[in-house]
Design a protein around this nucleic acid. Sequence first.
DNA 1: ATATTATTTAACCTATTAGTTATTTAACCT
DNA 2: AGGTTAAATAACTAATAGGTTAAATAATAT
Lengths: 117, 117
Amino acid sequence: MSRDQLSTTFSALADPTRRAILARLTTGEKTVSDLAEPFDMTMPAVTKHLKVLEKANLVERSRQAQYRPCKLHPEPLKDIDEWMGQYRQFFEESFDRLDSYLNKIQTKKENDDGNKK
Amino acid sequence: MSRDQLSTTFSALADPTRRAILARLTTGEKTVSDLAEPFDMTMPAVTKHLKVLEKANLVERSRQAQYRPCKLHPEPLKDIDEWMGQYRQFFEESFDRLDSYLNKIQTKKENDDGNKK
DNA sequence: ATATTATTTAACCTATTAGTTATTTAACCT
DNA sequence: AGGTTAAATAACTAATAGGTTAAATAATAT
């Protein structure tokens, strides 16, 4: 019991089903059945994956009638992003790339206040 | 066999010993004994961790006399960083923070060409 | 040739993971 | 109250992970 948070998060992400669940949650809340639908596995299996994501604090649950909607809780991803910081200098080969990286984020945000470009 | 690359990478990172090994490799090549030294575990355990990192393509091995030096191979981290892209908009709460993020990277790179400040 | 140092492999153990089927709980609708 | 739908739990299984000790391999040094 009581693994460190980063390990729990990485571990939760080390499964394609769980990553697919997270990806689908980027478009909003979903019920368990909604989430289970695309997968070739039983509901209890999906329930278990959700439990893993919940324990890793990547998913929040609520209650609406007989549904238990799931919502993305992205904070632990931020921690990973920060952890990654110590390695960026090793895989961002040139500092110029930062520029295109910036643009990429901006595009994603659909925000155009013309920062450096 | 044959898990997807992203799962293999996340899985390799889901262990504090392995993350500590990677961190120590940022300062250059190390032998297995070097790497094992700080940990309270036997050599074969470290060898196994290295094997996991090697299979995940996060570490490269070479040969020098009876040593098998280990070297950081950061490419798979880049893949994770790119995967993270789809979630950044969810955890970078305001666009302003991008600015401090930028500065953080710059500082880390110990590069001061005064980009937006 | 032999001994030493560095590392790996083999065999084993225990706990955890990812799935299953069958059963139960919870909330809703007549 | 009884039936239906949504989801979780229990009990089981097979595979994998992370560690151990003991033995084997590889290269160097004498």
